[in-house]
Amino acid sequence: MAHAPLSAADRKLLETTPPEALFAALKRVLFAKGLVAPEEIPAQIAQTERASPLIGAQIVARAWTDPAYRALLLAEPARAVEAFGVSLTGAPPLGVLENRPGQHHLIVCTLCSCYPRAVLGYPPFWYKSAAYRARAVRDPRGLLAEWGTVLPAGTEITVVDSTADYRWMVLPMRPSGTEGWDEARLSALVRVSDLIGMTVPEAPA
């Protein structure tokens, strides 16, 4: 059934109650009505925290070392991430954007905070900030420079504004100087900001 407009009293309740108190009251009502069981909340937290940027880093390291896996990751991301225990059943579809020589990707959600949570977990604080949401689409080069990210001259930046049903992740380029490294060593180089495109992985000098 479609949403009914809220009464003036209910709007006022939402606009004037401290959110922490409102949330505590909301939980009590939901528990009392049997709509949610208290133990579901810690169980869900545990489930959510299984996803993390470490999984994204492992996916990237596998793609860097296994050409068949890389092809699968780009063509069928949902199948590819299953190799790391991530199920996207019921989650939004995942798209993987491949950085190449001359082509860099940067992901933002200007309307809210859409993020591939099923793989990477909670979005970083900066990704949700008003400054990031405002600037990424308008001044991506200035933003990257501010974080010390240097792209080779002539690199085009594609900014992806994640507005709808897909969730996007960047497949960064493997840094030079990592020839012969195994997956574990490579995955330790990959940070969450590399998977969004604000930074690029670098081998230690």
Binding site: W126, A131, A134
Partner: peptide
């Protein structure tokens, strides 16, 4: 909430520090 390109925030640095939930 529709913040893409909005001038009010164009000169605000993007804070790099992560916050614990």
């Amino acid at each position: 909430h529709d913040l893409g390109g909005v001038r009010r925030f164009l000169c605000t640095p993007v804070e790099r520090e992560e916050h614990t939930l």
